[in-house]
Simulated scan of single mutants.
Amino acid sequence: MGPGSLLIMLIVGALAGWLAGQIVKGGGFGLIGNIAIGVVGAVLAGLLLPRLGLGMGQGFVAAVLRATFGAVILLVLIRVAKRL
């Protein structure tokens, strides 16, 4: 993985984490928190979406949408776990 790929991954993670924070909580988690949530969300979506038979295409926008989907699921799971 080259420096360009790493930069794109960080940008996708930051955008996805911020969007998920807006959707679920109503706020962001700071730059580092957004990146972490977005990257973990992308991994989660990468595991879940193919098993559900859902494909979102390729490209930057599709990557952000996939990562956001996974990040929203992650934040909802965290919220549920905190209530237990």
Rank of each mutant, 00 (worst) to 15 (best):
G27P: 00
G27K: 13
G27V: 04
F29P: 02
F29M: 08
F29C: 03
G30F: 07
L31K: 11
L31W: 15
L31P: 11
I32D: 14
G33C: 09
G33H: 09
G33M: 09
G33E: 08
N34Q: 12
A36K: 13
A36V: 15
A36H: 06
A36G: 11
A36P: 06
I37G: 09
I37E: 06
I37Y: 14
I37Q: 09
G38H: 10
G38T: 08
V39S: 14
V40Q: 10
V40M: 12
V40N: 08
V40Y: 08
V40W: 07
G41F: 03
G41Y: 01
G41L: 02
G41E: 05
A42V: 05
A42C: 08
V43N: 06
V43W: 13
V43E: 10
V43A: 13
L44P: 02
G46H: 02
L47V: 10
L48P: 02
L48N: 02
L48M: 10
L49I: 03
P50I: 00
R51Q: 12
L52M: 14
L54R: 06
G55A: 06
M56H: 01
M56N: 00
G57F: 03
G57V: 03
G57I: 03
Q58T: 09
G59C: 04
G59I: 02
F60Y: 14
F60N: 08
V61I: 14
V61D: 10
V61L: 15
A62T: 05
A63M: 10
L65H: 02
R66K: 15
R66T: 05
R66V: 00
